[in-house]
Amino acid sequence: MSESTYIVTGMTCGHCVSSVTEEIGEINGVQDVQVDLSTGNVTVTSDRELTHEEIRSAVTEAGYQLAS
């Protein structure tokens, strides 16, 4: 089990949270996605190590950006 936290910029509402959660949740191996709207922190729990590019791609597909 692997858990990583990322910072996503541009989220302002519940719809933003839903979009990011949905796109990251579709990555193979993702077990759980927790989004803290106030900080932009997105914690992803998965059954394998995820690449930064996998997360970046999902966040971009949702319409947002990773902070780094």
Rank of each mutant, 00 (worst) to 15 (best):
M1K: 12
E3R: 13
E3S: 15
S4Q: 06
S4W: 03
T5Y: 12
T5C: 13
T5V: 11
Y6S: 00
Y6N: 00
Y6P: 02
I7H: 14
I7K: 03
V8R: 06
V8F: 04
T9D: 03
T9Q: 02
G10S: 12
G10C: 14
M11Y: 07
M11E: 03
M11Q: 04
M11S: 02
M11C: 05
T12A: 10
C13H: 08
C13V: 08
H15S: 04
H15C: 04
H15L: 05
C16P: 08
V17N: 15
V17L: 13
S18P: 12
S18Y: 09
S18Q: 09
S18T: 14
S18M: 12
S18F: 05
S19G: 15
S19L: 11
V20K: 08
V20M: 10
V20S: 07
V20H: 02
T21P: 08
E22P: 05
E22V: 01
E23L: 11
I24K: 05
I24R: 13
G25P: 12
E26S: 08
E26W: 12
E26V: 08
E26R: 09
I27D: 02
I27P: 05
I27H: 01
I27E: 02
N28E: 10
N28M: 13
G29W: 13
G29L: 14
G29P: 06
G29N: 04
G29V: 14
V30W: 07
V30Y: 07
V30E: 02
V30C: 03
Q31T: 07
D32F: 05
V33R: 15
V33S: 15
V33W: 14
Q34N: 11
V35C: 09
V35W: 10
L37A: 14
L37M: 08
S38T: 09
S38A: 05
S38H: 09
S38W: 07
T39K: 14
T39Y: 12
T39D: 07
G40L: 15
N41W: 11
N41Y: 07
N41Q: 14
V42R: 05
V42A: 10
T43V: 09
T43C: 12
T43H: 15
T43M: 09
V44Y: 02
S46Q: 07
S46L: 10
D47E: 08
D47Q: 05
D47A: 12
R48A: 13
R48G: 10
R48P: 15
E49D: 09
E49H: 03
E49N: 04
L50Y: 01
L50E: 07
L50P: 12
T51G: 10
T51L: 01
H52S: 03
H52Q: 04
H52N: 04
E53T: 01
E53H: 00
E53I: 02
E54H: 05
E54N: 09
I55T: 13
I55N: 01
R56D: 01
R56L: 01
R56P: 04
S57W: 02
S57A: 04
S57M: 09
A58E: 01
A58Y: 02
A58D: 01
T60C: 00
T60E: 00
E61C: 05
E61P: 03
E61M: 10
E61V: 01
E61R: 15
G63V: 11
Y64A: 05
Q65A: 04
Q65H: 12
Q65Y: 06
L66M: 02
L66R: 01
L66E: 00
A67V: 09
A67L: 13
A67H: 11
A67P: 14
S68P: 04
